Amino acid sequence: MPKRLDIRLIAPSGYAADRAACHRGIERLQAAGHRVQGEAVVERTFLRFAGSDAERAADINQLADATAPLPDMVMATCGGYGAIALLDLLDYGGLATRFRDQACVFVGHGDFTAIQCALYARSGIGSLHGPMLLQDFGATYLRESTWRHFWQTATSPRTEVSWLCAEDQPDLRVEGTIWGGNLSTVCSLIGTPYLPEFDGGILYVEETGEQAWRVERMLYELKLAGVLDRQRAILIGGLSGQRVSEYDNGYDTEHALQRFGDACGLPILRGLAFGHGPDKWTLPFGAQATVDVLDGTAHLTASGYRHAGDASSVN
């Protein structure tokens, strides 16, 4: 049984198209003994967003209010699009001060990657790249492995995961700061003050609904912008939703990654499940990590990151 936590919901991106799923997720969290706050964001709709820019930014900025207690966890309801419009509206100084000595962890994925990058770049606040309310905890079938690994990671200072990568993957060992998220969202922050600069980083990226050539182009964006010059390895998650057209002549995601791998000069590891997709591991953003590959099996360990309910975990 995970620790009983105060969980506050925020909706920085799209609105909840399936509100029944959100309420199912809230009920699951409550049934596990957690206290859920901020349910009203599930009901908000403005155009394609979960409220106006000001409303969605206020959900986050209220965490800087020293007169109100912080929750143990801040969980995004869902992704979509819209978080990037909030980045100039957030109180980074206030959030940095508030989070300096109090245990509270942000969690989300997809479009929420923009918030995670900005919080680290401007406030030094680490987070968790993991499941969200609608797609994951509110799913008709709750993935036990996703649930179990999330709580293990979210409430302890160390996490680990193993997975099978390509049989011809050379053995290796890399250490560095682990970070990343949705590929297109990370690329949207290039050239802005909201993309963290990690020297000796281990970058994880995933994507959904983008064609193979677009994935390759975004990876080249990171390379040409110098982001990859500071990384020691790239971990590739799911790249679902690609379609191969007649014009592609067989060119697909495998070709895209092979071509880019030959050009970038970094170890590229496939097969790590995170982000979009029904089964996912929870990955720290901004933690120290080690990746070992031996005989086609990769093992990731990360430690010393901010986790819920423990003041000793703050950055």
Rank of each mutant, 00 (worst) to 15 (best):
E197I: 10
E206G: 06
N249E: 10
H299G: 07
L128F: 12
P278K: 14
E27R: 15
N249A: 13
D136N: 02
D310N: 14
R122Q: 15
Y141Q: 12
A57E: 04
E246N: 10
M73Y: 01
V244G: 09
T67V: 02
T67D: 09
A103C: 05
S123Y: 02
K280R: 15
R148P: 02
Q116R: 02
D199H: 13
F112S: 08
R35C: 10
L89W: 00
E175M: 06
S184K: 11
T282P: 08
L134Q: 14
P193Q: 11
T297Q: 13
I236C: 04
R158K: 13
A225I: 06
L235C: 10
I236P: 04
G110W: 00
L87Y: 04
W179P: 00
L47V: 07
G51F: 13
P131I: 06
Q152H: 14
R56K: 12
F46I: 00
Q231L: 03
Q288M: 09
L183Q: 01
I84A: 15
L222F: 07
W151S: 04
E27W: 01
Y305R: 05
R56Q: 09
S303F: 13
T185R: 14
R270I: 02
H23R: 15
T185A: 12
Q37V: 03
A68R: 15
A64G: 13
R4D: 05
L283Q: 00
A121K: 08
A16W: 03
H276T: 08
G309V: 01
D65P: 12
A58D: 15
W213T: 13
A139Q: 05
Q116E: 11
A32Y: 00
D252L: 06
A114L: 13
R56A: 11
V36W: 00
L257F: 05
V161K: 10
D295R: 14
E43L: 13
R306W: 09
I268D: 00
P278G: 14
T159R: 10
D248P: 02
A114I: 05
A103D: 01
I10N: 04
G304H: 10
S156I: 02
Q211P: 11
D310G: 10
A83R: 01
E43V: 07
A118M: 11
D6P: 00
A31I: 01
E167P: 06
S52W: 03
Y141G: 02
S52G: 07
G237L: 06
G209K: 08
A83G: 11
S245C: 09
C78H: 11
P193T: 12
A166E: 15
G277T: 10
A298N: 07
A212V: 03
Q62Y: 01
I236L: 14
D295N: 15
A103T: 07
Y204A: 13
R98K: 09
N182D: 15
Q169W: 05
G237F: 02
S13Y: 01
M218K: 15
L119M: 14
I26P: 01
L195S: 02
I178F: 09
W147S: 03
V161L: 08
D279Q: 10
A83P: 11
R230T: 08
T97C: 04
I190D: 03
C22M: 09
G108W: 06
M73S: 05
R122V: 05
A16D: 05
A166Y: 02
E246S: 13
L70C: 12
G126S: 14
D18N: 15
F260D: 07
V291D: 01
G191K: 04
